[in-house]
Amino acid sequence: MVDANVRVRDFLENGFHLVAGDGGLENPIEGVYICDLLSWVMAKSKPKNAWITIQSHVNIVAVALMVEQSCIIVSEGVEVEREAVERANEEAMPILSFPGTSYEAAIKLYQLLSK
């Protein structure tokens, strides 16, 4: 069962590091979607998902906004590009960094969402 009361803020200090978009920390999270193909995310991801990707350029912010993602999680410790950070701050779209793989991030999120 997914706990409907989980928010982006709850991911912090659980291995996820906030890179940008602190204006969206209260966004609720109802699920997780993992994909690095942007059009695929636009086609398949549901609103209020945490989106895990290794893409780190500015376009991820626009994609996340279009399909109302709760936050973007950039896995594998990939450095988020400056333009993406600026855009995410402007749009209050949280970007979180995670040092492990997308799979490991998903396991962590499952645990946090299942509490």
Binding site: L37, S39, W40, M42, A43, N59
Partner: peptide, 14 residues
């Protein structure tokens, strides 16, 4: 960059 999934026009159509 994650573009070129071959979903552009199909997404527009959908």
């Amino acid at each position: 960059m994650g573009f070129g999934a071959g979903m552009g026009l199909p997404n527009i159509k959908a």
